[in-house]
Nucleic acid binder design. Structure first.
Lengths: 102, 102
DNA sequence: ATGAATATATTGGATATACGATATATATAA
DNA sequence: TTATATATATCGTATATCCAATATATTCAT
């Protein structure tokens, strides 16, 4: 914990979840994801050292698949990934129940 | 990341946020918090080595205050803590916008 | 007063997220 | 073809969350 009001939570450990969620909306490539996440978190764009290892990890677990498209690699959720997201989402919603009211 | 579907996210870094949120609903003591969080996460109760350092950290930042009540110490949000929660909540909601639909 | 149960607290360590720096590859422009 | 820009990838490291084990304190029952 850092001691500054903005970051009483740094969302460590939520990156994989967030990526799965975003890919469930729309297949994207790495930089697109980094940009979208930065916008949501109102922070500067995720560095390559953050986004690519995260993608690699999700790929190794079979949660996402990649398809080369010219210069970029487009990632999509696999069936396994979709299932993992569903489970994680249920848990997430239950854990933070009430945070979204008022 | 662990490789198991339940834990594509481990919510590291969200503990402080969750504690602030729960205390904003109702002042509680340490064990009460540990129990409530376990129930929400559907996991076993947080160990003392998790909950007390987290409380100490929030206290050091001036986000919570304590009041001894018999055997227990009841924690409440301070004005500073309430403000920190408000800011963190805004960011949290924006980051995870859409996760709660459908 | 003694013992059991519960709450609080600290310490050491495993874990893995995330970043900065750096390297490589591909595509488009000139 | 050469240069530039962009995307992907890896490595080393700082960070700090979280847990297990352990210690201390307080209350309540007997």
């Amino acid at each position: 914990m850092h001691g500054n009001e903005k970051d009483c939570c740094d969302m460590r450990g939520m990156l994989g979840f967030l990526i799965l969620f975003l890919l469930s909306k729309k297949p994207m490539h790495g930089q697109e994801l980094a940009t979208e996440i930065a916008k949501r978190k109102e922070e500067k764009k995720l560095s390559p050292g953050t986004i690519y290892p995260a993608l690699k990890s999700l790929r190794d677990m079979g949660f996402i698949s990649e398809e080369k498209e010219g210069k970029t690699i487009v990632y999509s959720l696999t069936a396994r990934g979709d299932n993992a997201l569903k489970i994680a989402k249920r848990k997430f919603v239950k854990t933070f129940f009430g945070v979204f009211q008022d």
